[in-house]
């Protein structure tokens, strides 16, 4: 009984030892996927924001759609603090180190965007909505100015 017990412990320890390596390399593998995921989330944001822009500047007959885009933006804003885990600072990303150095500021900027979007979602008057779309547009800069690389330093600049 004792002999089997020690064997079990030894096997468990060996597995844990091996597993500890694979966790590290799994994160390294996944960081590229994590970065791509959050870039798709950013695309989703710009999809909604771009649609709101087309609506507002061209006076499109989609007053009823504004709340859909606004709710989408408000919900997506809640994901932002979660999709920048440690280990995804480097690689094909334009995220700046301050996202991890100043997480409270980052969270606050994301929440601000969410608040402006929620305000828009609650509006029923089209004129007011157009003005609020402009305000919402300003909140993009709340993150981008401090936490995103400028174009001349983007990872997208190829040889």
């Amino acid at each position: 009984m004792k002999h089997v017990h020690r064997l079990a412990i030894a096997a468990a320890l060996a597995l844990a030892f091996v597993f500890s390596f694979s966790v590290g390399s799994a994160l390294a593998q996944d960081s590229a996927a994590l970065i791509k995921y959050r870039q798709r989330v950013m695309r989703a944001l710009s999809g909604h924001m771009g649609a709101l822009g087309e609506y507002a500047k061209n006076n499109l007959p989609y007053d009823g759609h504004v709340a859909v885009h606004a709710r989408g933006l408000a919900e997506l804003s809640k994901l932002l603090p979660e999709i920048f885990p440690k280990g995804t600072e480097n690689g094909k990303t334009d995220a700046l180190p301050d996202i991890w150095a100043k997480p409270a500021d980052f969270r606050k900027a994301a929440e601000n965007m969410g608040d402006e979007a929620a305000k828009l979602a609650g509006m029923s008057d089209a004129m007011g909505a157009k003005a609020q779309i402009k305000e919402l547009g300003k909140s993009c800069g709340g993150c981008h100015k401090k936490f995103r690389q400028p174009k001349e330093k983007s990872y997208k600049n190829k040889k």
Partner: peptide
Amino acid sequence: WFLETALKPNGDDAQS
């Protein structure tokens, strides 16, 4: 619209 809001047709905002 861009000169008024800094919002580009692709939904992104103008930088710096």
